[in-house]
Design a binder for these strands. Structure first.
Lengths: 124, 124
DNA sequence: ATACATAGTCTACAACCGTAGACATAAAGC
DNA sequence: GCTTTATGTCTACGGTTGTAGACTATGTAT
C-alpha cells in the first residue's frame, strides 16, 4: 500500500470534508468550508497532483474522492509529528499528553480499557 | 508566561541540542549536528528574531540559550497537531496511537500506572 | 599595530504555501 | 447554434523554509 503524500494544513481541511462524505465537487466543498471557490480549486489541483485525491468526471461535474483513508493519513502525520517533537518515541509523548491535558475520569477509564484490550495484540 | 513561537522542523533540531546542554555557541551546535555552520547561523538568527532563544555575549563568543522549556514547546506543538489532524480531541488521538503503534507489554504497564497516578489530578 | 580567525548580518534562491485573479473550455439552456 | 454558467488550468504574489555564499566586525595572537 502506498504511503500518503505530505498534506498541508489547508489541504487537511479539504480532506476532512471529503472523509465525511465522498465524492464531492469543488463547489460543494467550497460551500461547506465557506472558502473562496478559487482557493479550493487550487488546493484540489495540488492534492490531485500529489495523488492524495482522485476524481471522476461525470458529465459536466468533477467528483473528487480521497485516495487514502483518514486513519492512514493520521497514522502518517502522527509518525512525523512524533519524530519531530518527541524524537520518535511514543511513550514520552503519551505521558506528556496524559499528564498535561487533564483528562476526565471517564476518559481515563476508557483509555485503560483500551490498553487492556491492546495487551493481547502488543508485541513483546 | 508567554507562549512559544512556531518552530520549524530544522529549528527543532537546534532546540533539541540546546535542551540537552545549554548554553552553546553556533560552532558547537554545528559540530554536534554535523550541519553546515552557515546554515546553523541562519537558523539561530531566525530563532533569536522570533524570540525562541536568546544569547549572552561573553568576550568573543555568543552563547545561545532557549527561552522556553522543551515541555512548553512540546505542549504547544501537540496542541496544534491535535487540532489539525484529530480535530482537537485528545482521546481519539491516543486511541489511534495506542491501537496503531504496537506498544510493548512494558510500555502498556507504564501507561496504566501513569493513568492511575493521573486519576487523582484529572478534572471530573 | 597587524594579520588571522571566528562569528554575526545581509543577501540569495529555489521550493512550498495560502490566497486568488484571469483565462479557457465545455455542458446546458434557450 | 449561441449565450450563460460552471469548472478546471495557468499565472501570480507575498511569506516561509531550507540551504548557504559573501561581507563585516571584533577578538586574538604575534
Amino acid at each position: 500500500m502506498k504511503k500518503p503524500p505530505p498534506i498541508t494544513d489547508s489541504e487537511w481541511s479539504i480532506m476532512k470534508v471529503l472523509w465525511k462524505k465522498q465524492p464531492l465537487t469543488s463547489t460543494q466543498i467550497a460551500t461547506q468550508t465557506k472558502s473562496h471557490p478559487q482557493t479550493i480549486k487550487t488546493f484540489l489541483s495540488r492534492l490531485v497532483k500529489k495523488k492524495a485525491i482522485g476524481y471522476e468526471k461525470t458529465g459536466r461535474s468533477f467528483y473528487y474522492r480521497t485516495l487514502f483513508s483518514e486513519k492512514e493519513c493520521q497514522r502518517h502525520e502522527s509518525r512525523s509529528f512524533l519524530n519531530r517533537v518527541f524524537g520518535g518515541s511514543l511513550r514520552p509523548m503519551i505521558s506528556h499528553l496524559v499528564e498535561d491535558e487533564s483528562l476526565s475520569q471517564r476518559e481515563i477509564q476508557e483509555l485503560k480499557a483500551l490498553l487492556n484490550k491492546t495487551s493481547r495484540g502488543g508485541k513483546e
